[in-house]
């Protein structure tokens, strides 16, 4: 593989999963909230846990997003420091 192609594939590998991870966090948060509302508390607390779960899910999504950014920033800065 040529260098440009290699870099392209690496970039895709680094950032291609951003969207999916974000959505997965939100789905897990929302699903957990709905489960708490409907199964654990028998609809007595609805819709509060759904909203709380959604909020936590979105927060977790942003956290994973920032983690990916920080990780790649660190990796980019490392070779520069060695110069």
């Amino acid at each position: 593989m040529s260098d440009v192609k290699k870099e392209f594939v690496q970039l895709l590998a680094n950032y291609g999963h951003v969207g999916f991870t974000f959505v997965a966090s939100i789905i897990i948060g929302l699903g957990g909230g709905i489960y708490l509302d409907q199964k654990v508390f028998d609809d007595r607390t609805s819709p509060w846990f759904t909203f709380i779960g959604l909020a936590f899910g979105i927060a977790a999504g942003y956290k994973t997003l920032l983690e990916i950014l920080w990780r790649n920033k660190e990796k980019e800065e490392k070779p520069k420091r060695q110069d």
Partner: peptide, 14 residues
Amino acid sequence: LPIELISNLARLLS
């Protein structure tokens, strides 16, 4: 704690 748990479980799903 919920944020970390959710983001850890999201790894499994994603």
